[in-house]
Simulated scan of single mutants.
Amino acid sequence: MRIHKEGYPTIFLSIIVVAVINLLTLFLLAPRYPVLTWIILIATVGLLIFIFSFFRIPKRTHSSGSDLIVAPCDGTVVVIEEVEADEFFKDRRIQLSIFMSPLNVHVNRNPIDGEVLYSEYHPGKFLVAWHPKSSTENERHSVVYRSLSGREVLVKQIAGALAKRIVNYLKPGDRVHQGGEMGFIKFGSRVDLLLPVGTQIDVKINQKVQGGVTVLGKW
Rank of each mutant, 00 (worst) to 15 (best):
F88W: 14
C73M: 06
I98A: 01
G75E: 01
V77T: 02
I51K: 06
R109K: 12
I57G: 06
S53H: 14
S119Q: 11
M100K: 01
H62S: 15
D74Q: 09
P111N: 05
E84Y: 05
A71C: 08
S53N: 15
D91N: 15
I49E: 03
H122F: 13
E115C: 08
V128L: 13
E81W: 07
S64F: 15
F88T: 01
V105P: 04
L68G: 03
H106Q: 05
P58Y: 06
T76A: 07
A129Y: 02
I69R: 02
D74M: 10
N108D: 09
V77Y: 00
A71D: 04
A71M: 07
D86Q: 12
F54Q: 09
V105K: 04
E82M: 05
E81R: 12
V70S: 02
V78W: 06
L96N: 01
V70K: 01
K59F: 09
D113Q: 08
D113N: 13
P72F: 05
V77L: 03
I112E: 02
N108R: 03
K59I: 15
F126N: 10
V128W: 14
P102K: 09
V128P: 14
F50L: 15
R60V: 08
L117Y: 06
Y121G: 10
Y118T: 00
P58L: 10
D86G: 09
D91L: 10
S63F: 09
Y118P: 00
D86A: 10
Q95V: 01
I112Y: 05
N108G: 04
H122K: 08
V77F: 02
H106V: 05
V70E: 00
I98T: 03
H122R: 11
N108F: 02
C73A: 14
R56C: 07
Y118G: 00
L68N: 02
N110D: 13
R93N: 03
P123F: 10
I51L: 14
